[in-house]
Design a protein around this nucleic acid. Structure first.
Length: 420
RNA sequence: GUGGGUGUAGCUCAACGGUUAGAGCAUCGGACUGUGGAUCCGAAGGUUGGGGGUUCGAUUCCCCUCACUCACCCCA
């Protein structure tokens, strides 16, 4: 009845999300494999939590005043009337899992890692997406500063394995609940005196979270901030000793770092050590990886009083500075001539796959030339030639595409060439 | 949420306000029914993001809108 073609609907991935296509996905697989291998070397084990959680979990864990919670969460109501949220970060989920399964009663410390998508309703830009992927590493129940150093060392190890040379490691201590209030107060007072120099945003931050003024990119604010007191002078004895020991161990590992007193991380729960790996060439979003210690989070959840420590890697950002050699594909293409040979081709493909050879047979009947053209396009390493003569003899031709050399043999004999 | 930049074929890009919007690459077919990359021939592919306006005439100029992108905010 309606002859109007339906209005041309724009089909496109949702803003800030992306498909990862073949050709690109191999890099992701390589990163995932190397990350897994590296973390397992240090005794970390994977812990997988759901993609969404009760909204309340993030309000408590991430902090009700943080931007992530106040304006960046993907929150929805399910059919049972529950308020759920696609996780904007991973740490609260791990904390929840530990409490729920009473993992705190097991031997400590607990070392976990995880990789997967996170969701934040941000305005997308280079290195920042609404669905993005993180590799998360967390240690619970270890207060020794050696743990902080181990995490930084392990992150550095992974980046070295990935061949990331353009990076700098920034480390700082943001103190704890005992000593940070005094520092915040000192900053607040200083900012109060210099209020005329600060941008409106920073005037607000002076009240809510004065440490964040250091993050501001406005030149006037930066130059004002340069004369602000530094946190080192305010750390309590415990925090100072902790920080000194972290730095000392990093020196022992031979990991070059830069102490950056102005490194304040965005999430409110950090205590003592914070760190960030930055790289140029990432645009404005220069942090490849960020983390630190959070001694109070678990307690704040109403869980056991055990400390936490960890970091998150931005996979998109990391991949954009990594140049991994792609694994070489070794594909066998089966070229057959005619309908009878097609059946043999399918059988042969089955045989070779059972023997662990990547093997492709296409179902469109082609001439030999077209088969080879196709094999070439698919970047096959070999072509198996299956025609009437070959079937009669039970011996097939195997051509190595790179060299053009061709051998003949039974399927078992050819297996040797394929594996050699 | 706020600013800037960009939108033409699957991709990379052309077209002074003026014929039927072109090219390269990619795709498909043919030359070519027993051996690849080459070459030649051909085909297909577009509501020039969408809507409105100015004009005899708009891919081109103006406005709005949408998308992408970069930056702010924030963060990995």
């Amino acid at each position: 009845m309606s002859e109007d073609s339906p209005p041309k609907k724009e089909v496109a991935a949702v803003k800030g999300t992306h498909d990862i296509l073949p050709g690109e996905v191999e890099k992701w697989q390589a990163l995932e494999r190397l990350a897994r291998e590296t973390f397992e070397l240090y005794g970390y084990r994977e812990l997988r939590a759901p993609v969404f959680e009760a909204t309340e979990l993030f309000e408590k864990g991430t902090g009700q005043t943080s931007d992530v919670v106040t304006k960046e969460m993907y929150t929805f109501t399910d059919k049972g009337g529950r308020s759920l949220t696609l996780r904007p970060e991973y740490t609260p989920s791990v904390a929840r899992a530990i409490i729920e399964h009473r993992l705190d009663l097991q031997a400590r410390p607990m070392r976990f890692y995880y990789m997967g998508p996170m969701f934040r309703y941000d305005r997308p830009q280079k290195g920042r997406y609404r669905q993005f992927h993180q590799i998360d590493v967390e240690v619970f129940g270890e207060q020794d500063p050696a743990c902080d150093a181990e995490l930084i060392g392990m992150a550095d190890h992974l980046l070295r394995r990935l061949g990331v040379t353009d990076k700098e490691i920034l480390v700082n201590s943001v103190g704890c609940r005992a000593c940070r209030p005094a520092y915040s107060q000192a900053l607040r007072e200083e900012a109060g005196k210099r209020t005329a120099e600060l941008c409106p945003d920073c005037r607000r931050k002076a009240e809510t979270n004065p440490l964040r003024i250091f993050d501001c990119k406005v030149e006037a604010c930066q130059s004002a901030a340069r004369s602000f007191p530094e946190i080192q002078g305010f750390l309590c004895a415990e925090c100072r000793d902790h920080f000194t020991e972290v730095l000392s161990l990093l020196g022992l590992y031979g990991i070059p770092i830069r102490v950056d007193p102005k490194l304040v991380r965005g999430l409110d729960y950090y205590t003592k050590t914070t760190f960030e790996f930055v790289s140029s060439g990432l645009g404005a979003q220069s942090a490849l990886l960020g983390g630190g210690r959070y001694d109070d989070m678990m307690k704040d959840f109403g869980g056991p009083d055990i400390c936490g420590n960890g970091f998150a890697i931005g996979m998109e950002r990391l991949l954009s500075v990594v140049s991994l050699p792609l694994p070489e594909r070794r594909l066998l293409y089966v070229a057959y001539l005619g309908g009878a040979a097609k059946r043999t081709a399918v059988e042969l493909a089955r045989f070779f796959r059972e023997e662990g050879v990547e093997c492709l047979v296409e179902f469109k009947d082609r001439g030999m030339k077209a088969h080879f053209g196709r094999a070439n396009k698919l970047e096959a390493s070999w072509v198996l030639v299956v025609g009437e003569d070959e079937i009669r003899k039970g011996r097939f031709g195997l051509k190595e595409m790179a060299t053009g050399r061709q051998v003949e043999g039974t399927r078992e004999e050819l297996l040797g060439s394929l594996r050699g």
